[in-house]
Design a protein around this nucleic acid. Structure first.
Length: 467
RNA sequence: GGCGAGGUAGCAAAGUGGUAAUGCACUGGUCUGCAAAACCGGUAUGCGCGGGUUCAAUUCCCGCCCUCGCCUCCA
């Protein structure tokens, strides 16, 4: 059974099957590397990662392309502030991005093209668009796409001409001199003529020195790595308009293809019930959360715990909740592994068939997680044979792999260093217990708890754990 | 104003034309000297508000309220 996924263009759930019958080829709009990505950015990348994992788990290989946007207003501006060349500056942030992706257990894309490395491809596409009458060079050397030349413009975002113009007329009141060089307010830049503030960041073109517009890189790199037609295109909801609308216009007018055959858009992450913003100080990065003691695995769990098409509210409590949920899964896995130590590679969800089918229905991750816990709750590990335990565990790991969940060690198994004084108090309490001096034992237990340590008695003796 | 998404227990979040998964938190019990862990159980007479359709609606229809996003370069 193939994955059924909501398609933004048709507003319907459609089966995701490869055009070529073999490999699912898809493109994701990647990060602009001018600073660390925040967890809102990562919600989108994590959702795309789950999509890829589910497709691969269902037996279809993928070709995953995700770009790095390393030339735009912000990268140019901030590289200059940092006193670095654009390439050095973006290389640093790209490295940080990769490290964060690895921490979040994101599968690396098969191809990760950089915009700066594909400027000739973009120039070539502009040339085609000018030749076919879909684009024109303005007096200052900028090149614009003529929106009126593409009848399907607005189809993806479902925006009418009227709305497009209304929006554009508002923008025109801004003091951007570029606006006056365009034939129509709705036209957008393919090539931006060199400006003094660009510094050394300009490239040659038949229309003069300058740099490519933002939308064009994706179209050019998609053509290079996926061709005129490909299976699926994905990004955050905010990219529907204008970014994806413009990509469609550029690509469809410069090739004979239909561009993306399926559109997946991920809803935004909210924090404490509101939108994220720098001014509110709630724009968290993985590093911010690590400082508060939360792992990337816990962040990932929170990010997948809501359906990708619904806004998700992120709170610190949700991270605590994720920690406990992961522990619950880890403990269940541990119980199964004691019955069946070797982990068989499973290509089927076994006991978790319901969870798997839920996942195939528009990537319902929260529903699938619920089904996994439900199945585990019904399970009586003690009554299982080794074969049964192996099958259940294989199924569990099939699901965990599809969700990209990496189980943490069970907390009580984690070796912690116990300070000598704490250890001594614990020993005293043990001695009191052996002497059946309950008041003394209880007093010592309380003393240790006040110091942040918990005594856990076992058959053989006792262990001390941090609270 | 237009378009889109969403409003379900203390928090988070699924789902369905027939009477509310799941995780966290809380809580009762078993166990334990007491705890912890584990296991068994409880916690929304109700799914934004008001109408309507229906034998039956949280689920369909209409109206309204609220939140979030987009309306030219924000995942």
């Amino acid at each position: 059974m193939p994955l059924k996924l909501h398609d933004t263009l048709t507003r319907s759930d459609r089966a995701v099957t490869p055009l070529d019958g073999k490999t699912l080829r898809f493109y994701c709009c990647g990060p602009t590397v001018y600073g660390p990505a925040h967890i809102g950015n990562f919600r989108t990348f994590v959702a795309q990662d789950v999509m890829r994992r589910v497709v691969e788990s269902s037996g279809t290989p993928t070709l995953h392309v995700r770009n790095i946007t390393d030339v735009d207003d912000k990268t140019i501006r901030d590289s200059q502030k940092a006193g670095q060349t654009l390439v050095d500056f973006t290389r640093g942030w790209t490295g940080k991005f990769h490290a964060d992706c690895a921490a979040l257990n994101l599968l690396p894309p098969h191809v990760e093209p950089s915009a700066v490395a594909h400027i000739p491809h973009q120039v070539a596409m502009i040339g085609k668009l000018i030749t076919s009458g879909h684009a024109y060079a303005a007096a200052d050397g900028s090149v614009y796409f003529r929106v009126s030349s593409f009848k399907d413009y607005g189809k993806l975002s479902h925006l009418e001409d009227r709305e497009l113009r209304l929006g554009a007329s508002d923008a025109a009141s801004a003091t951007d001199s570029d606006e006056y060089t365009k034939d129509s307010l709705t036209d957008f830049a393919l090539w931006k003529a060199r400006k003094p503030e660009d510094g050394a960041n300009h490239w040659p073109s038949p229309w003069g020195e300058g740099r490519p517009g933002w939308h064009l890189e994706c179209s050019a790199m998609i053509l290079e790595y996926l061709g005129e037609d490909f299976d699926l295109h994905s990004g955050g909801v905010d990219l529907i308009f204008p970014h994806h609308e413009n990509e469609i216009a550029q690509s469809c007018c410069s090739t004979h293809g239909k561009f993306a055959h399926h559109w997946m858009h991920v809803a935004h992450l909210m924090v404490d019930g509101g939108k994220m913003s720098k001014s509110l100080g709630n724009l968290y990065t993985l590093e911010d959360l690590a400082k508060r003691g939360y792992s990337a695995a816990e962040v990932r769990y929170v990010l997948i715990s809501g359906h990708y098409r619904a806004p998700l509210n992120f709170t610190m409590h949700s991270l605590d909740s994720a920690r406990q949920a992961l522990q619950k899964l880890a403990k269940a896995d541990k119980a199964l592994s004691s019955l069946s130590p070797s982990l068989p590679i499973s290509k089927s969800p076994a006991l978790f068939q319901d969870a798997w089918e839920t996942l195939l229905h528009d990537l319902n991750v929260p529903g699938a997680l619920g089904a996994i816990f439900g199945a585990l709750n019904k399970l009586k590990p003690a009554a299982l044979s080794a074969e049964e335990a192996a099958s259940v565990r294989g199924g569990l790991h099939f699901m965990l792999h599809a969700l990209g969940i990496h189980l943490p060690p069970v907390m009580e198994d984690t070796a912690v260093e116990v300070p000598a004084d704490i250890q001594a108090l614990a020993q005293q309490r043990w001695d009191a217990k052996q002497a059946k001096d309950w008041p003394a034992a209880d007093a010592l237990r309380k003393q240790l708890e006040a110091a942040g340590w918990l005594i856990k008695d076992t058959r053989e003796g006792f262990t001390v754990l941090p609270l």
